[in-house]
Structure formats: C-alpha cells, structure tokens
Amino acid sequence: MTLTLLLEQIFNGLQAGITLFLIAAGLTLILGIMDFVFLAHGSQVMIGAYAAAAITIATNNFYFGILAAIPITFVCGYLLEWLIIRHLYRRDHMDQVLATFGLILFFNEAIRIGFGPAALFTNFPSSLSGFIEILPDTPYPVYRILIILVGLLCALGIHLFVSRTRVGAMVRAGASNPEMTAALGINVKILFRFIFAAGATFAGLAGMMIGPLTSVEPGMGEPLLILSLVVIIIGGIGSVRGAFIAAILIGLVDTVGRVMLPMLFKTFMSVSTADTAGPALASMSVYILMAVVLVFKPTGLFPPKGA
C-alpha cells in the first residue's frame, strides 16, 4: 500500500460521498422540517437516472439528456408532493412508512412496465472519457472528477441558500422548530412543496450522474436510500452541514475500508481468516459506524440547534 494509492482511494471515497450527499441533502430536510419519513426517496434517484438515460438514448446527446432530465425530476417531485405526500404530513410515522413503501413498489413496477426489466445501456460521451493526473503517475477519470465538482458546487449552492437567503432562514427555522415556524405565518405548504421538489431534483441529479457508471435498472435506488438514511442519522436529522460531513465520512469509510481492511487483517492473521473476516467487517463498517455514533451521540453528530 503506497501513499499515492491511499490518496487515490480518498478521492474515490470523496466521489462516493458527494453522490450520497446529493441524495441525503433533500431527505434530511424532508425528515427534519416536515417530520416525514419518506422511504421512496431512492425512487427519485431511479427516476432521474431513467429520465437522463432515456433522453440520452433518444437524442444521442448526453448533455441534452441531463438538461432535460433536471426539470422532469423537479416536476415529478412537485406532483408527488401535491398528489400524495401533502395528505400524509399529519399522519404518524407508521402510516408514512406504509404509504411510502407502497410508493416504492409502485415506482419500481411502473419503470419495469415502461422500460422493461433489463438494465438500460448508458455511457458518457467520449469527450469525458479521458484521465487527469491527480498525482504523478496516478491518472484519474475526468468524469468522476466532474461528479465531485458538480457535487461540491451543489453543496455550496445549498449551503449559501440555506444560510444567506430569506427562504433559507425559514428552512432553518423549520428544521429546529416546525410548529413555531407555522405559527409565525410562514406559508408552510408552499415551502414544503418547494423543498420536496428540490430534494427530488438533487436526488435525481445524483441518479443522472451515476447512471453512466452503474447499471440503470428498476430498484437501483433502494441500496442508496439505506445508505443515505445512514448518512442523515449520523449527521443529525435536518442538518445539511451534518449530512455533508457524514456523507463524506461514509463514502471514505466504505471505500477505504473495503480495500484496506482485508489488507490490514492480513498483517496479523492468517490469509484465509483475513479473507473471511475482512470483507465481512467491511460490509458491516457503515452500520458499525452508525451504531457507535448513536450510542455516544443519540441524535447524531450535528443536530440542528433547538431540536
């Protein structure tokens, strides 16, 4: 294990973490401000990936696919909130779990009927297929660097929006005390719908960007949903800053742990034991991290003030 490899793995972890952050950013606000357990957030990732892939295939233009898919995911989120979600805010968490679980089943089957059960073929344009030497003799794919940059840009945008604008102030107020915000006469309905649609868009954007790297298939969002829930919990529900730090943390622990744990184990135990224990522990690593954080900080690392 050389230093350059470690640095490269940190880059990989960063890219995975940034992607998770895009998904978790909206979800943490939905959970924190609306106190709404929204399990179908992974479906938004899938919708984004499918929209971008389908348009890219139809028009043969990757950039057009992404540009057209962004408003589509926004509208999808907006409609979903208006049709179903807004009726569920006043229900308890159990009802929300059941209803949004039903939504997952619905979206997965709808995609399966519409696009077939097979994975869609997608790839990024050859103009993005090059490499950049991030370190001497360590080429890194341009496309993945682009994901990191877009993700950081989004994170910066969300941060400025939440901390500098009037609407952002409402969002912050909402996260720390939802009842009080409503009592202040802020139009919570519109605020909620906007946050929901924006959250869907960022999740969709994550789907669009990872589409060309992974297989675009029904149900692709669920593993990401679980991971982004882990991120939100570690970061503290309702905290965008917490979600960002936790997402990077999870990305790093997962990526670096996967590669390094088995290597580490081989230094002090037999190869066959290490081959069993290493990957097993790597699979559990994010859950162990979450459990440890919660045992010591039962409301996550960065709970919003007043919560």
Binding site: L31, V37, H93, I226, L229, V230, I233, I237, A280, S283, M284, Y287, I288, M290, A291, L294, V295, P298, T299, G300
Partner: peptide, 21 residues
C-alpha cells in the same frame, strides 16, 4: 439510548451486522 427515527436506524444497523455475520 436513542428514540424516534434514530431508534429505527440503530435497530436496522444491528440487524444488518447480524445479517452480514
């Protein structure tokens, strides 16, 4: 030690550890 949504997730975490075990 936790409650609410945090409790949901910590119980999931322990279950996942056992699953992978």
């Amino acid at each position: 030690r936790t409650s609410g949504i945090y409790f949901i997730m910590i119980t999931l975490a322990f279950a996942q550890m056992l699953y992978f075990f």
